[in-house]
């Protein structure tokens, strides 16, 4: 393999890693939006919260694997509490989208400040578990095992999500609710419980991504800034509530980011927003969106 090709492949896998993480965050966000009509501005905060949980669990138990299980579950539980006691309340106030946006904005602020209060503003290191350290040679190219692990982990989660959505009764209800909310609630299904489940799973997935990202990026208060904004871009561009859109756009953004940094380092962060601004201006519902919210 020539060095140039190798660079391209490395950059592509790099982009894929980030794209997969982004998908884990964005898919929960888009599902929540599709079902409940809420654009959860606090979604990325759950990603960050989980990374801190991970750091804490590793500090206590010295095991990344236990953290990989416990931190997302803890995050999911926080998500369920937020849904049950805050979001459900604001939806009843009838402020419309502005109410949801404002409440979740408040939650995001509080989580980010709470994190700083508890763990301080400095960076915390989470070590890659020994079994995932080092490089592996794939087709004549050396690549960090941990990044491949992230891609694998994301695929497993994606598979599980697809299974739930397409092979179970609950998944059927969720999909139906995304396409027509009123119809499903008219069928006598306990929608509040389904909402709670979806919100819990969405935050759990963001939590998994947070744990996976922790050893790569270190844990600090600004951890979720980039992925959070990128996840909004994914939801908006991919189409509010569209899972297919989330997959496609996440992977695209991952690559855009990765190659952008390679070729136009100064403008790379701008590309994402420029992309979103263009799409929104000409296709306000996104590429795969069906409904105008």
């Amino acid at each position: 393999m020539s060095p140039v090709t190798a660079m391209y492949v490395a950059q592509a896998i790099h982009g894929l890693t980030y794209g997969m993480l982004l998908f884990l965050v964005a898919s929960g966000l888009t599902l929540i939006f599709g079902m409940m009509g809420i654009l959860n501005l606090a979604h990325a905060s759950f990603f960050m919260l989980s990374a801190y949980f991970c750091y804490q669990v590793v500090a206590w138990t010295d095991s990344f694997w236990i953290a990989l299980i416990l931190a997302p579950i803890g995050t999911g539980l926080v998500g369920i509490i937020v849904e049950r006691f805050l979001l459900r309340k604001v939806q009843k106030l009838g402020l419309g989208h502005i109410g949801d946006l404002l409440l979740t904005l408040g939650i995001a602020l509080v989580i980010s400040e709470a994190v700083k209060t508890i763990w301080g503003t400095e960076s915390h290191q989470v070590l890659i578990p020994p079994s995932l350290q080092g490089l592996v040679t794939v087709a004549g190219l050396e690549y960090p095992i941990y990044r491949l692990f992230i891609i694998g982990l994301s695929l497993v989660i994606l598979g599980a999500l697809a299974f739930i959505l397409f092979k179970t009764r609950l998944g059927m209800i969720i999909r139906a609710a995304v396409s027509d909310r009123d119809m499903v609630s008219a069928l006598g299904i306990n929608m509040p419980r389904v909402f709670m489940f979806v919100f819990g799973v969405g935050t759990l997935m963001a939590g998994v991504a947070g744990v996976a990202a922790a050893p790569m990026l270190t844990v600090f208060p600004g951890l979720a800034d980039q992925i959070g904004l990128d996840a909004f871009v994914v939801v908006v561009v991919g189409g509010f509530g569209s899972l297919l859109g989330a997959v496609v756009v996440s992977l695209f953004l991952g690559e855009l980011n990765s190659f952008g940094i390679q070729f136009i380092p100064r403008l790379a962060p701008v590309l994402v927003f420029l992309f979103m601004a263009l799409v929104l201006s000409f296709k306000p519902m996104g590429f795969f969106g069906e409904r105008d919210e």
Partner: peptide, 14 residues
């Protein structure tokens, strides 16, 4: 609506 909020967010970040 939400699209406006996101578009202005995008411009602000840009």
């Amino acid at each position: 609506g939400t699209a406006f909020a996101m578009l202005t967010l995008a411009f602000g970040q840009l």
